[in-house]
Simulated assay, not measured.
Amino acid sequence: MWRYLVVRFLLIIPTVFILVTMVFFLMRLTGDPITAAQGGRLPPDELARRIHAAGYDRPILVQYVEYLGNLLRGDFGTTLTDGTPITQLLTEYGGATLELALYAIIVAVIVGIPLGMIAARLRDRWPDAVLRVLAILWYATPVFFVGLLLKLVFAVWLGVLPVAGRASTSTEIDMQSITNATGLYLLDAIRLGSAADIVDVLQHAVLPAIALGFLTAGVFLRLVRTNVIGTLSREYIDAARSRGVSEFRLVTRNAFKPALIPVITVIGLQVAMLLGGAILTETTFEWRGLGYQLGHYLGARDFVAVQGIVALLAVIVAVTNFIVDVVAAIVDPRVRY
């Protein structure tokens, strides 16, 4: 087990290294960041002065080595537009993105796993066909389009849910009174002990969580269906069936746990998808997290900020995959051998 954990942990290093290297050189294909952000807005001599002061007129390999050195010291850079350290963006907005990802995972698990079991139980019947089509639609439909439809129906037409934001103005004012706030609004609202604030936070989270969660729910549905069907063909299932065990019990008890193990593994892969979808979801619902800030800096052509945030997200994805690998190894001993 320890050998497996050490190997998986060490794999984080080349994963992050490859990702940040790709991001660095892809960003540089557009030229130096200052010209990209300020070109056409400054006189040529002032632009050249700023480029020289930032060191962007040096050889690209020199800049790359310096960038890696800064990353090793935990320095992800500073934004050009407002001079904010990238690590500060993580502390201010990372909680919002984490909270949204957790909501989405909860929705995906609650929706995808039971429907996958139903599809497997009713294999090759019309409910199975309908659920498989739904899974494809959920996965293929752009998350921003789903978000806009949800806003139109539940916020505009029905008026039962908020249209945007993480909380109402009154709730955010209450949040400011918390010392050592976590940035997770639901947790902070629970710490406040205000039922009204808790309800308000949950109401604002419903539509973004559904829009992003259904993206992953389609993956879980098809994965659980496939694995439950495969498990139901095993010899020990046939033996249990011959003893008179009901089909419902076979699916929910005997076939459920083996089918759940691949889902745990895939959760790590879905984190990257959720973070990518969070950019569009946060922008659609004005959910002020890292994805929302990334969209803002992309619009401002602040490629230093974009590069830093993407590097941070790469580290988060790599660490999350390591945690998921550990959980999978604990649940299924075969993984670590």
Rank of each mutant, 00 (worst) to 15 (best):
I12P: 06
L202F: 02
I173H: 12
N70M: 11
V310C: 04
T97G: 01
G276I: 08
T320V: 14
I13S: 09
A278W: 07
V224Q: 04
A240V: 03
I12S: 06
R334N: 05
G213D: 07
L232D: 00
L221V: 02
L184A: 09
V263D: 11
L186V: 04
W2R: 15
R225T: 02
A328N: 07
V324I: 15
S177K: 12
R41A: 11
V163M: 14
V156A: 14
A314F: 05
Y297E: 02
Q63Y: 07
P114H: 07
E286Q: 14
G218M: 01
P114M: 10
G112R: 05
L89T: 06
N70W: 04
A211H: 03
T35D: 04
I264K: 08
I60D: 15
V266L: 12
L187N: 02
A36F: 10
R132N: 10
A155F: 12
A196G: 11
M117W: 14
Q307D: 06
L269W: 13
R249N: 11
T252G: 11
L158K: 15
S242D: 05
R336T: 08
F256R: 07
A305S: 03
D57C: 04
L131P: 00
L212I: 00
V163N: 12
R3K: 08
D302V: 01
E46L: 15
L161T: 03
V146K: 03
S168M: 08
A53D: 06
R241A: 03
L72G: 13
A328E: 05
P33L: 14
Q63M: 10
A255F: 01
T179F: 09
V143T: 01
P114D: 07
G95D: 15
D200E: 07
I330A: 05
G183Q: 13
R49L: 06
I210Q: 07
V251W: 02
G39D: 06
Y64G: 03
A189S: 05
V304E: 15
E92H: 05
V310Q: 02
V206G: 09
H204V: 11
R166W: 12
P142G: 06
P162R: 03
A119C: 05
T78V: 11
V163P: 03
G31F: 12
I113V: 14
T21H: 04
L212H: 00
R166K: 12
A129Y: 14
A272E: 04
L148C: 14
S233G: 08
I210E: 04
I309W: 09
G291C: 04
N180L: 13
V319F: 10
E286F: 06
V133T: 07
G147D: 13
L158F: 15
V107L: 10
V65Y: 14
V263R: 02
A181R: 15
R123Q: 01
I86A: 02
H204M: 09
L61I: 12
A164P: 01
P44R: 05
S242I: 06
L294S: 08
L184V: 13
M1N: 09
R243S: 03
V206H: 04
T252D: 12
V245A: 10
V306P: 02
R334I: 03
P258K: 00
D45E: 14
A167F: 03
